[in-house]
Design a protein around this nucleic acid. Structure first.
Lengths: 247, 247
DNA sequence: GAGAAAATCTACTCACGAGTAGGATTACCT
DNA sequence: AGGTAATCCTACTCGTGAGTAGATTTTCTC
């Protein structure tokens, strides 16, 4: 055996999976060790304590989002398109293995120093979203809104994905990301001009995503009619679709 | 001293506050007892175990939301308006004392029977939102969307309020509720017809809310300009406004 | 005020889980 | 091979916190 770094990462991933499944406090280090078919002291050989384990999981998750911001900074498109690209990555990160840890890691469970570190990273993400919102309002690509509240709403909706998303479900995380961007863009109010600013969005970053699955863009959802009104069969279709809850 | 029920409720509330502050797992029953200036066995005199304490807190929170659904059922307005009324109550419930417990109570921490009970209640709320969305699409008051994903997005955004809202902050929970409804309705895409379906919303339930504070409706946020573009000072105003994070 | 019932206390048990000491085993190098 | 360093183990300690037994105090009733 060799390559300590790889094994260390395996420990982190095992921890992430366990936390994801049973929660931080309901997961003992013995559990994590057992999942790796080793014993507890072996785990301690790679990480210094349980806290650090959680912290590393958080880092792995949030780093995906930070990368999205960096990537998007280069793009020469409207702020809304850049925001959408970030939100898509955000959604996928939250739905990933480390999603739970990223979302649920509470300052409460951590030592002051780590807590501060995490707070700083969370704030960085939040401020990044707010900034894109403001830029979008300035370049006219985003409807005027309170950037702070809107950032909270967006982050909340996306973070919550970690609560209900499970692998092997009806939708992939990419499809969910797409659906959410659509919801965020349109809002609940009917839009009479169904083709306002027709394309221009939801297409820009297709080269930056790992171009998953097939359906992308505005037609992911087969059961949405184009007219203002939905046909009655819609509710039946919705009923057919799983039973997961969202709160 | 008398009236067991009142004291019991005080215990529940103390637990809610403690959970809210330090999290379920970081709160011992000794803590709760100390907050009430009694000892642990006294707490056990009123509740049978810690689990039940959490469960009761959850119930208290979710009941507010269920009440909102019942209340709204009577109204003779568009489905969107009924949905908005529910969302407002939802937001206030989440921002209340029991918000944390309602949102964070995990099936993981509870026995199978309680877990099932909670799941059922959560599902009821979720299905209620989906139903309103479907009705809104049918009566034309809501933009066509996937009701399941949209319900998840709405619930997520609102649930997340429990993570960042603290009493004595710049905004009251009613103001936050109002801001969120506005965001949900409009979405991020600019709306060229700034007065589409001009009033008609955000006014219906003013008699049903406890008519809090002063600012209500579309003009709560002083820093949103009416034109499509925001003036530059906006970002400065945003910078002035607190430092809380949203993820 | 006596006796019963309600309410609260002191003083425990007990399990579980984080973290450690120190020994065994394995791989690595020349 | 033989020695060293890395890796992993067995077998503990120790604190904490949920929950309880049983005594004690308060309150209510007649």
């Amino acid at each position: 055996m060799q390559d300590r770094a790889i094994k260390r990462e395996a420990v982190i991933r095992a921890a992430a999976r366990a936390f994801n499944e049973k929660g931080y406090h309901n997961t003992s280090l013995d559990d994590i060790a057992a999942a790796l078919e080793v014993t507890k002291p072996t785990v301690y050989y790679y990480v210094s304590n349980k806290e650090q384990l959680l912290f590393e999981c958080f880092l792995a998750g949030v780093e995906q989002i930070r990368a999205a911001f960096r990537e998007v900074k280069q793009l020469d498109v409207s702020a809304r398109d850049r925001l959408n690209a970030v939100l898509r990555h955000y959604a996928q990160a939250v739905a990933s293995e480390f999603g739970w840890c990223m979302v649920r890691t509470e300052d409460l469970d951590l030592s002051p120093s780590m807590s501060a570190h995490i707070k700083a990273l969370k704030s960085e993400v939040d401020q990044g979203i707010r900034r894109l919102l403001r830029e979008g309002m300035q370049d006219g690509s985003i409807h005027p809104c309170d950037p702070k509240m809107t950032a909270f709403a967006l982050a909340g909706a996306l973070n919550w994905i970690a609560h209900w998303f499970r692998e092997n479900q009806s939708m992939t995380s990419a499809q969910i990301a797409e659906a959410f961007v659509l919801i965020f863009e349109n809002g609940l109010l009917p839009r009479q001009t169904s083709a306002a600013l027709p394309e221009e969005s939801a297409h820009v970053e297709s080269s930056h995503l790992k171009s998953r699955s097939s359906g992308r863009g505005r037609d992911t959802h087969s059961d949405r009619s184009v007219s203002g009104r939905t046909h009655p069969s819609n509710s039946a279709a919705a009923r057919r679709r799983g039973r997961e809850r969202g709160d």
